[in-house]
Design a protein around this nucleic acid. Structure first.
Length: 419
RNA sequence: GUGACCGUAGCUCAAUUGGUCAGAGCACUGGACUGUGGCUCCAGGGGUUGUGGGUUCGAUUCCCAUCGGUCACCCCA
C-alpha cells in the first residue's frame, strides 16, 4: 500500500496556501504595528518544560503529548503549545533585561495527540503573542486589542465574539474551588453523571456543562466573580475600562475556563458558532508566576494563541492566489533561445512568467495559457524572429499587437506594473 | 480514550435481491483544427473497489478485524 499522511495531520495544498499566506501576513503586520517582534522557537523541548509549564494534571500533559526518547534516553516532547517554549527562551537568553513589557510573537506548528475532528488536528498551527514583565492591566487590554485588530484585518470581526473573564489570583481560586466543590457535592443528585465525576477532577469545568438538567444547579453555584480579591477585582475592572475606552465589544462570561493551569486574572477567548464543537478561534490570558515557576525572574505575562486552521476555515477558500502574468510561447528551438533571456530578465524584476519549450503546437500552448490563467501570451515563431518582434496577445480580449523583441522585457514590466 | 456514520479512478459519484459491475462526469494527455485559447466531437492513460481475513460456486455488495475519514463526547486553537 502507498504511504499516506499519518492520522490527524494534513497537507496544505496550493489552492489553500493563499489563505494561509494572508493570515500570516496579516498577523505579522498587526503584531509589528503593536511593537511585537518575532521569535522563532524549536518544535521540541525537554518533556519536563511542558510538565512544569502547563501543569501536571492537565489533559494535555497527561494524555495528549507526543513524547519520545532520543538516543541518549532523554525524554523529549513535540510542543503542544508555544508559551512554555517562549518563556524558556525568554529566561535562557536573558530577554527580561530589555525594557518591559517585552513583546514577542511566534508562529508555527503544535502537536497534540487527540482524536481529529472538525477544526482539530494532531499537528496544527498557532500564532502566539506574549507580553512579558508588566502587570499593568493596560497590557491585558493591549494584547486583546491586538487580537481583535488581527481579525478585523481579515474581515472576520463580525463573525466572532470576544469573551472575557477573570479567574482571580490563586488564593481567590482556591477559596472558590473549596466552596464550589462543597456545593456540587451537596447537589450531586441533581447533576448528570459526568458532572459528578468532574466535581472531583476539575470542578471549574462543571460550570461549562451544556446539559439542561444541570443548569438550575449551576445557575445557583458559587460564582468565581464573588471570590475575587480586591486587587484582582480592580485589575479586571481596569482591563474592562481600557477595552471600553478603545470601543472594543466583549461579553463577560463568568464560566469561561481555560485548559492550562497557569492562567490567573484575565482570561479571554474569541469564539464562533461556525466551526461545530470547536468554537474557540483564539484564547489567552494572564499568567503571572509562570516565568518564575520555570526558573526565571518573577515576571508577569499575558498573551494568547490563535488557531490558524480555524482562522483559515472561517476565511473559506475565497483568497485568490497570484496568477502568472504571461506565458511566453516560443515556436521552435531558436525562439526558445531568444525568449529564455527575456523570461529571465522579467523574473529578475519580480514578474511571474512561464516559458514553453518550443515543441507543442501554438494551439496547445494557447490552451495551456488559458488554463494557467495568465493575462498575456507572447508568441514568437519563425515569422516573428525574421521581423525581430513578438506578438503580445491579451488573453481576455484576444487583442494582439507586435512588440520589438528588444523591448519585450520592458513591455512585460509595463504590463506587470499595470496589473 | 468513548460513540455514531462512512471508505469504488486525481476529484464528485454509479453498479438493480451477492451473478460481465469495475463504470460515468470532471480533470489530465493526444487527435479532429499545417501558427491562434475558452465551445464541440473522438481516442487514450489511470482502480489489486482502504487493508487483511472469513462466508459463498461467485463479494464493491454479507460478516469480523484493522487502518483512515467525518461528526459528537472529552478537551482545546
Amino acid at each position: 500500500m502507498t504511504i499516506k499522511a499519518v492520522r490527524g495531520v494534513h497537507d496544505i495544498l496550493p489552492p489553500e496556501a493563499p489563505a494561509w499566506q494572508r493570515v500570516e501576513a496579516t498577523a505579522r503586520r498587526v503584531c509589528e504595528a503593536y511593537g511585537y517582534r518575532e521569535i522563532r522557537l524549536p518544535i521540541f523541548e525537554r518533556t519536563e518544560l511542558f510538565a512544569r509549564g502547563i501543569g501536571e494534571v492537565t489533559d494535555i500533559v497527561q494524555k495528549e503529548m507526543y513524547t519520545f526518547e532520543d538516543r541518549t534516553g532523554e525524554s523529549l516532547t513535540l510542543r503542544p503549545e508555544a508559551t512554555a517554549s517562549l518563556l524558556r527562551a525568554y529566561i535562557e537568553h536573558g530577554l527580561h533585561v530589555q525594557p518591559k513589557p517585552v513583546r514577542l510573537y511566534t508562529l508555527g506548528p503544535m502537536f497534540r495527540y487527540e482524536r481529529p475532528q472538525a477544526g482539530r488536528y494532531r499537528q496544527f498551527h498557532q500564532l502566539n503573542v506574549e507580553a512579558l514583565g508588566e502587570r499593568h492591566p493596560a497590557v491585558d487590554a493591549e494584547v486583546i486589542a491586538l487580537l481583535v485588530e488581527l481579525f478585523r484585518g481579515l474581515g472576520l470581526g463580525e463573525r466572532l465574539t470576544l469573551q472575557l473573564n477573570s479567574l482571580g489570583d490563586p488564593p481567590d481560586r482556591a477559596a472558590h474551588r473549596e466552596q464550589l466543590v462543597a456545593y456540587l457535592r451537596a447537589n450531586a443528585a441533581r447533576l448528570c453523571e459526568e458532572c459528578r465525576e468532574r466535581t472531583e477532577r476539575n470542578p471549574l469545568r462543571v460550570l461549562d456543562c451544556k446539559r439542561p438538567e444541570c443548569q438550575p444547579v449551576l445557575d445557583a453555584a458559587p460564582a468565581l466573580a464573588d471570590f475575587l480579591g480586591r486587587e484582582a477585582a480592580e485589575h479586571f475592572g481596569r482591563v474592562r475600562g481600557y477595552l471600553d475606552a478603545m470601543g472594543l465589544a466583549y461579553v463577560v462570561n463568568p464560566r469561561l475556563v481555560r485548559g492550562f493551569d497557569y492562567y490567573v486574572r484575565t482570561t479571554f477567548e474569541l469564539t464562533t458558532t461556525e466551526l461545530g464543537a470547536q468554537n474557540a478561534v483564539a484564547g489567552g490570558g494572564r499568567y503571572d508566576g509562570l516565568v518564575e515557576r520555570l526558573g526565571g525572574p518573577a515576571d508577569p505575562g499575558v498573551g494568547f494563541a490563535v488557531g490558524m486552521e480555524r482562522t483559515v476555515l472561517l476565511l473559506g477558500d475565497t483568497t485568490p492566489g497570484t496568477q502568472p502574468l504571461a506565458l511566453l510561447i516560443p515556436l521552435g528551438d531558436e525562439a526558445v533561445r531568444r525568449l529564455l533571456p527575456v523570461a529571465q530578465a522579467a523574473r529578475a524584476r519580480g514578474l511571474a512568467v512561464d516559458v514553453g519549450y518550443g515543441e507543442r503546437k501554438l494551439r496547445g500552448e494557447l490552451e495551456r495559457a488559458n488554463k494557467l490563467g495568465v493575462a498575456y501570451a507572447v508568441i514568437v515563431g519563425d515569422t516573428e524572429l525574421g521581423k525581430g518582434e513578438a506578438i503580445v496577445r491579451e488573453m481576455k480580449t484576444g487583442a494582439q499587437r507586435a512588440v520589438p523583441l528588444a523591448e519585450l522585457a520592458a513591455e512585460l514590466s509595463a504590463l506587470g506594473g499595470r496589473a
